[in-house]
Amino acid sequence: MHPPLNSLPARQAALRRSDWPFLAGLGIIGILYLGLILALLVADASFTSPAHLWAALRSPEIRFAIKLSFLSSSLTMILALGAAVPIGYLMSRRDFFGKSLLDAVLDIPIVLPPMVIGLSLLILFQTRMGRAIESVVPVTYEVPSVILAQFMVACAFAVRTMRATFDQISPRREQVALTLGCRRSQAFWLVVLPEAKRGILTAATLAWARSLGEFGPVLVFSGATRMRTEVLPTSIFLELSVGNLEAAVAVSLLMVGTALMVLGLIHLFGFDPSLKQIR
């Protein structure tokens, strides 16, 4: 005699059967995507040789681009943190009129097409205010334009990260600090900021990595002048445009290596899972 269909063993068997196709589907999609990512890296690596890589690294133009890329990204990272920590804290802790509108405005650099950011910066510096700034510090098509173009996008990501970081730190601890004798600023420096250390390191790393890879706004706002405003993505573009695929791949590999290092650093900082929603 068959056991009734709703008996425990029958239900257990049915549950086991129904989970497998679902899990297998997830696994297959995951493996395909992972395979695609790894295939990209392997293709890059197999396309070039150490000799090509070495030749690219010895080229004065590319050396300049490496130097400018690393310097501008580092400066942008510092500027982005300087803006993101106070803005993220304000957005996390205070409620005020128009907050949701401000929240949407802060995301504009993330959703705008990169070229549009570059074009908007170019137009901004053609206005009366922009020209006044240019008369003191030349910006457009100069190094400051590289930093400003990188900052526009990197800062938006840093603000998102810092806001998520402060959202996770219970305001209770600040309140306790206030009752223990702190001013608001003391509670921020002594209690909140040390607790936000990992978030700050993550925001810094993200800002630096975004700046290093920024191309669209830099191309439009800074141009692609060799030995002047050339950063690593510009090098790839310039080498490709003259058909020098080997040099373009060599620079790409350099950037891949840097990206992997950044990824390692982010994980080392204990990158908070809830921050993973941030692109």
Partner: peptide, 21 residues
Amino acid sequence: LKPALRGIGFVPQDGALFSTM
């Protein structure tokens, strides 16, 4: 008066200890 000037010892429900100290 600000909380700092009231001289109250406050113990919240979860303790709210400072995690880095």
